[in-house]
């Protein structure tokens, strides 16, 4: 057999065997990975809609809702919003909001807000801020000052800009971006309240554009 034919046959056989093996593993792990992603989303939603009257992001709490909010998603104005319910009644929303351009890319947050407009929780889903500086947006102590407040209760700006929120030392831009995400969620609730509460849930796998 000429050398070139052997080359082709050997490489094809090995590539074929590798594909077969990978297809098998992919089929095995796909449902597990999907479930992990779902659990991760649910865990974040739980944290932003806790069963507390004075929400504290540093404490773990049971969720306030009794449905599966990850299956009760709506898409309003390009925002993905999860609805938490008690029985049939919507009691709170978890809005996926992206804050203004921060120090390194944007910050993707999950903002919990109840129907009175009170912020019930704030979790960071994805960010690329500097570890030790901007990454402190993940510290629950810092986020606590934004939680449990209604829109009219304080000026939603950092102290440097004349507001009521203490910025993180050395990370004013990251702090501003977080506030911006909360403001976007508040604005959405103000302007699209009916649509948020009554729109039919999206089908599983459907994606909301823009975000």
């Amino acid at each position: 057999m000429p050398e070139s034919a052997k080359m082709i046959i050997v490489l094809s056989l090995i590539a074929g065997a590798a594909s077969l093996g990978l297809a098998q593993i992919n089929a095995q792990t796909t449902p597990l990975i999907a479930e992990n992603e779902r659990q991760f989303t649910l865990r974040s939603i739980n944290r932003v809609m806790p069963d507390m009257d004075r929400p504290d992001p540093c404490q773990s709490a049971k969720p306030r809702f009794d449905n599966n909010p990850d299956q009760d998603r709506v898409c309003v104005d390009g925002y993905t919003v999860y609805r938490g319910r008690q029985g049939d009644e919507v009691i709170g929303l978890a809005v996926v909001a992206v804050g203004d351009e921060a120090y390194s890319g944007t910050i993707r947050c999950l903002v919990g807000i109840n129907l009175h407009g009170m912020v019930t929780g704030l979790e960071v889903l994805r960010h690329a801020e500097t570890p030790g500086l901007g990454a402190k947006i993940e510290d629950c102590d810092w986020r606590a000052q934004l939680i449990g407040k209604k829109a009219e209760e304080m000026i939603w700006k950092v102290v440097k800009d004349g507001g009521d929120v203490d910025q993180i030392g050395g990370a004013t831009i990251s702090s501003r971006s977080m506030i911006d995400a909360v403001l976007k969620a508040q604005r959405l609730l103000n302007e699209k309240r009916d649509q948020l509460l009554t729109a039919p849930a999206m089908a599983a796998g459907e994606v909301c554009d823009a975000q």
């Binding site: 792990t29 597990l32 990975i33 992990n36």
Partner: peptide, 13 residues
């Protein structure tokens, strides 16, 4: 590598 990537995503998310 692909195997590790899939297994990690499935078991050590």
């Amino acid at each position: 590598v692909t195997t590790v990537d899939l297994l990690l995503a499935a078991y050590l998310y």
